[in-house]
Write a protein that binds this DNA or RNA. Structure first.
Lengths: 225, 225
DNA sequence: GCTAAATTCAAACGCCCGTTTAAGTCAATG
DNA sequence: CATTGACTTAAACGGGCGTTTGAATTTAGC
């Protein structure tokens, strides 16, 4: 009488069509990108997905578990893309250290690229930005603990910036993430501020802008203490 | 039988003690900094404030109106501090253009400083970060439209960076706000990432770090197109 | 010290929430 | 072709929500 109620990790299980789960995840991603977790009701969500109200509890177990499943799906996809670009940059450097600019590109390009092409990961990033302040404690802790893939970037940056103490590399990587977040959270303010001059319309231009800014910040002279 | 129910703009009105309104605002600021608007109930809020459940509706008219009043109180305070620092920097430049670094300091110092001293504005910043994804549409639009005080910084930066096109100044100012936001929203991730190495403990060190990073980003060479 | 307004209070209102239930549908299996 | 198990469905559940009410209480003016 129940499928993925306890743990939502089965991918094909027995043979029931996989459709409904994906439909729910897609609708949830879209809505959670527009409003916060608490502000989206299951009635609204299931109606948008075109499924029955009980479907979420049947397939995921609870609203909380749906959020966690959603986070998992997106994180895997995004981190895989980032890791691939970083690996390619390292191979290009022939075992040496890639330039800061290329490490930065590997960090920011996937998220920006997805924002322009698929709606999928664009929404994921916005959703993550919101989820930090809302939702079940378990999901928020997962977001904070899931830093393993960032460690690879911290390591690579530390090698490329050997004059910086380790903790400064962490701080600047943290700021770099903040710059990325500003692409998903406050674009309306930027559009208003610039009188419509600045918009998310040209992928390459936006990417170049972000990479320039973040690279310059990472390479800034170290003056603290 | 009613006081500020329709519009919550009266400051002293007739003579009822001002205490309750302030107590509610303080409690709300604290809670909205921890959780999102939707996730905080009036029962929880009024209990934390030590007032009756109906007090919010009596003094502010509704939960939505409380959020807007709260935003107003904090925005005025923060913008006033920023404007004062910018004015002082401009006076120091003797009618000329202050260096980028000093403009940046005027932009970021108030928020950082308040984060360390009073609890008041520290919470306000966190609350604003959350409010963008939640709460009544009216409040969110207000946050996006309230960019007047940022225009002053955009203008000052454009003068200090005459080689940049106007829209690029807007973009980089936008990124600077993103870096600031990262101080309120994702600190837990930074602490985990750095193994506890990075923390919000030393005001001057944090401020210097942010100013260095943002200044370098603003002064980065312009390569787009 | 009385009056009238301002504020507080406990109780209730109706609504929508996440979740559960139990009957119903449908495809695959033996 | 009956049976089984996965899935869908409509309906209901208890509970917490924002808000309203009307009486009790406090405060200020004459």
């Amino acid at each position: 009488m129940k499928a993925g109620a306890d743990i939502a990790t089965d991918m094909e299980s027995t043979g029931g069509r996989q459709d409904t789960k994906e439909v729910i995840l897609d609708a949830a991603e879209k809505l959670f990108a527009e409003k916060t977790y608490s502000a989206v009701s299951l009635r609204e969500l299931t109606q948008a997905a075109g499924v029955n109200l009980a479907a979420v509890n049947y397939h995921f177990g609870s609203k909380d578990a749906l959020l966690i499943a959603l986070f998992r799906r997106g994180a895997i996809e995004l981190n895989r893309a980032r890791a691939r670009l970083l690996r390619e940059a390292e191979e290009r450097a022939g075992g040496g250290t890639p330039p800061v600019r290329e490490i930065v590109a590997a960090l920011v390009l996937p998220a920006i690229r997805y924002s322009f092409t698929s709606t999928r990961l664009a929404l994921y990033n916005q959703f993550v930005a919101f989820a930090r302040g809302d939702g079940p404690a378990e999901a928020r802790e997962m977001l904070d603990k899931e830093v393993g893939h960032l460690q690879r970037f911290a390591l690579s940056l530390a090698r490329a910036l050997p004059h910086l103490p380790q903790h400064e590399v962490y701080w600047r990587l943290h700021f770099a993430m903040g710059v990325q977040h500003s692409l998903y959270t406050d674009m309306k303010r930027l559009e208003t501020l610039s009188g419509g001059l600045c918009q998310l319309d040209d992928l390459d231009a936006v990417a170049a802008r972000v990479i320039d800014y973040v690279t310059a910040g990472l390479e800034a002279p170290y003056t603290v203490t």
